[in-house]
Amino acid sequence: MKVTIKLFASLRAGRFDSEQRELPAGSDLAAAITAAGVEAREAAVVFVNSRHAEPARPLAEGDVVAIFPPVGGG
């Protein structure tokens, strides 16, 4: 199945802004994060189709995944 992965802020550096990835049917969000080359600890806030989601959430064809790094400075 195809999913669109969008990276934000510093996660784009050396990776991409937005790309489609082919994942095995039944893959979960954690698999999409791995497919984007993002380590689990780097993915602080993740949305699927603009809804906050946990790594175990199953994905479906056409889902849009948005991944943000942890931002905590002041």
């Binding site: 510093s10 600890r41 780097e42 602080a44 806030v45 790094p69 942890p70 931002v71 905590g72 400075g73």
Partner: peptide, 23 residues
């Protein structure tokens, strides 16, 4: 709390620092 979850440690600012414009 929901935004950050149970995460430990600093965010990406520990590598990127903080120039003036973002704050």
């Amino acid at each position: 709390e929901e935004l950050y979850g149970p995460r430990e440690g600093a965010g990406v600012e520990s590598d990127l620092g903080n120039p003036a414009f973002a704050p």
